[in-house]
């Protein structure tokens, strides 16, 4: 998964580069068109149109039966049974393309989420930056036996454009170190988090453009990389569980409706698929 993401990140950065200065809805619309077309193409490639069509006609027939014989309970029961059976068959015929779609699109949608799902920090913003350590961070860092409250020797290396607004707060119960950080200048900044000999880099985007933003850099793991692909994972043996900050969530404007991009994306994808199924000769 890490390798796939490592390839996908620059690809999506490149693909979305032309849209950075535009409202997110432009990119969302174009990509939902592409996704709609690809989805139809997958259906065409992997499903049997005759069987799909037959199942659809059987369902329609069942519905007609109910309307015509709505005073005959026996027929209605039989018709409902038939509808359910053929509906299941219909879903079954489209199962392969559907599963393919999910497998293919999930990593892609995860990539897009980190382009369209968040807004960058603005100059002057103050944000909490935190480093959460593993439960066994003391063993991993070999810092057992310290006097008083055990406290990791965490240091930040700040680039120009970011500054600290507070000393850190160490919460032993959460094994978390938190700083209040101020965004002084625009840019994709890299903060170095040094723990012992290891230094991890966390990206922080101060921008009003639509760019890739990664709220959290997480420990290694398949799901983490599947769902949070915007940054490479921390090393497998790192004492750090995650490094993160919170970006404001971005909503997109869809006519008079302000909502999460994924909703607009799904609605538009379905809409495009419905419009294009005729011209593309696809039965769904």
């Amino acid at each position: 998964m890490s390798a796939i993401n490592a390839a996908l990140r620059p690809l999506f950065d490149l693909l979305l580069a032309p849209f950075r200065g535009m409202p997110a809805i432009v990119g969302v619309t174009l990509f939902s068109l592409i996704f709609g077309v690809v989805a139809l193409w997958l259906v065409k490639l992997t499903s049997n149109p005759e069987k799909v069509d037959a199942a659809k006609r059987k369902v329609a027939a069942g519905l007609l039966e109910i309307r015509l014989f709505n005073d005959n309970l026996g027929i209605i029961f039989k018709a409902v049974g038939s509808i359910l059976r053929h509906q299941a068959a219909y879903v079954g015929h489209l199962l392969v393309p559907f599963v393919l779609m999910v497998l293919l699109f999930l990593p892609l949608i995860a990539q897009l989420q980190f382009h369209w799902g968040y807004q960058g920090l603005q100059e002057g913003d103050s944000v909490l930056f935190k480093v959460v350590l593993q439960d066994d961070w003391q063993t991993r860092t070999g810092s057992d036996g310290a006097d008083g409250v055990p406290r990791p020797s965490l240091e930040l290396e700040l680039p120009d454009g970011l500054s600290l607004a507070s000393p850190p707060v160490w919460s032993p119960s959460e094994h978390e170190m938190a700083w209040q950080m101020r965004a002084d200048a625009a840019g994709q900044h890299e903060v170095g988090v040094r723990l012992g000999d290891a230094t991890h880099v966390k990206k922080i985007g101060v921008t009003d453009r639509v760019e890739r933003l990664s709220p959290e850099r997480l420990e290694a793991g398949f799901t983490n990389q599947l769902l949070f692909p915007a940054e490479p994972s921390l090393g497998a043996d790192s004492a750090i569980e995650k490094i993160g900050l919170r970006y404001p969530e971005r909503d997109v404007w869809f006519f008079f409706w302000r909502t999460h991009w994924i909703i607009v994306f799904l609605v538009l994808s379905i809409l495009f698929a419905l419009i294009l199924r005729g011209p593309m000769g696809v039965t769904i």
């Binding site: 103050s126 909490l128 935190k130 008083g148 409250v149 406290r151 607004a165 507070s166 000393p167 850190p168 707060v169 160490w170 919460s171 032993p172 119960s173 959460e174 978390e176 938190a178 700083w179 209040q180 919170r246």
Partner: peptide, 24 residues
């Protein structure tokens, strides 16, 4: 969450988290 060394604490309320210095 009160730091054991410096006069700072992290306030968590609802979705908001913020580190505050004493007097801030």
């Amino acid at each position: 969450y009160v730091d054991d060394r410096q006069d700072v604490a992290k306030l968590v309320i609802g979705d908001t988290e913020q580190v505050l210095r004493a007097g801030e």
